[in-house]
Amino acid sequence: MQWNLPNILTVLRLLAAPGVAVAFLFFGRPLADWFALILFISAAVTDWFDGYLARSWKQESKFGAMLDPIADKAMVIIALLVIVGYSSMSPWLVLPATFIVFREVFVSGLREFLGHEAKLLSVTKLAKWKTTAQMVAIAVLFSQDIFLWHMLGLTQGMDGPTVDGIMSGAISDEVGILWLAQLRDIAGTIGLTLLWIAAALTLITGWDYFRKALPFLRDSA
């Protein structure tokens, strides 16, 4: 195992994955949301840097090639579980998240079964786009709850009719509640749209990997 910078970044990204969930155990909200968002974005940035540096510095290694997809999957799956766990279990969120988790587990199982032939399931350009869409969608969905909690903080001390009046426009919005509500709605729409795009790419690439592995799954006559 080579402890060069690309591999160190990959290890740090793997360690950051559970940190996204642990943040909600030790911090209140919206601090936990901010911590998870910053940690997730920082880890996602290293996903680009470690591969770029490994190629540029000719420091590609078997250890990095093995750990990089594991770190990516851990980041995505754990973050999705956190987002779904703190959501209202909307099917528009749960369904694409389920497709993504199912595909990641399925492809990992295929790679494990194929062993030395797993090189047939090398990462494609479409799979890289899939990972990018997943990470951007997750980051945007984390920001949605940040807007929500800051909005709730501004409404503390207000009675229900006052809040309803501000939201309807009958009462002047002096503290920026409507602005935060609009940002929350925009983040939710963009995040869900990207997540469904990621889910579609996930299923397409998953089927492509299955098709490539199919000859090795048939029993000999």
Rank of each mutant, 00 (worst) to 15 (best):
residue 191 G to F: 06
residue 165 G to N: 05
residue 168 S to W: 10
residue 189 T to S: 10
residue 180 L to D: 03
residue 133 A to H: 10
residue 141 L to G: 03
residue 137 A to P: 04
residue 185 D to L: 07
residue 163 V to P: 04
residue 186 I to S: 06
residue 162 T to G: 07
residue 191 G to Q: 01
residue 189 T to I: 09
residue 154 L to K: 12
residue 157 G to K: 04
residue 165 G to F: 02
residue 178 L to Y: 01
residue 132 T to V: 10
residue 134 Q to W: 05
residue 138 I to S: 06
residue 180 L to F: 12
residue 187 A to P: 00
residue 176 G to E: 05
residue 142 F to H: 02
residue 188 G to Y: 01
residue 145 D to L: 09
residue 129 W to D: 11
residue 170 A to G: 09
residue 143 S to K: 05
residue 149 W to S: 03
residue 180 L to R: 12
residue 176 G to C: 01
residue 174 E to G: 05
residue 132 T to G: 08
residue 160 G to T: 13
residue 161 P to K: 02
residue 170 A to M: 10
residue 135 M to S: 07
residue 183 L to P: 01
residue 185 D to K: 11
residue 130 K to M: 02
residue 163 V to K: 14
residue 161 P to F: 00
residue 173 D to K: 01
residue 169 G to K: 05
residue 150 H to R: 13
residue 157 G to T: 06
residue 155 T to M: 11
residue 150 H to W: 14
residue 129 W to I: 09
residue 153 G to Q: 08
residue 175 V to C: 01
residue 181 A to H: 09
residue 143 S to F: 13
residue 172 S to A: 12
residue 182 Q to C: 07
residue 168 S to C: 03
residue 143 S to C: 12
residue 142 F to A: 07
residue 145 D to P: 03
residue 154 L to F: 00
residue 169 G to S: 07
residue 178 L to N: 09
residue 176 G to V: 01
residue 166 I to E: 08
residue 138 I to T: 03
residue 158 M to D: 03
residue 168 S to P: 09
residue 161 P to G: 00
residue 150 H to M: 10
residue 134 Q to L: 14
residue 136 V to Q: 04
residue 162 T to D: 11
residue 131 T to R: 15
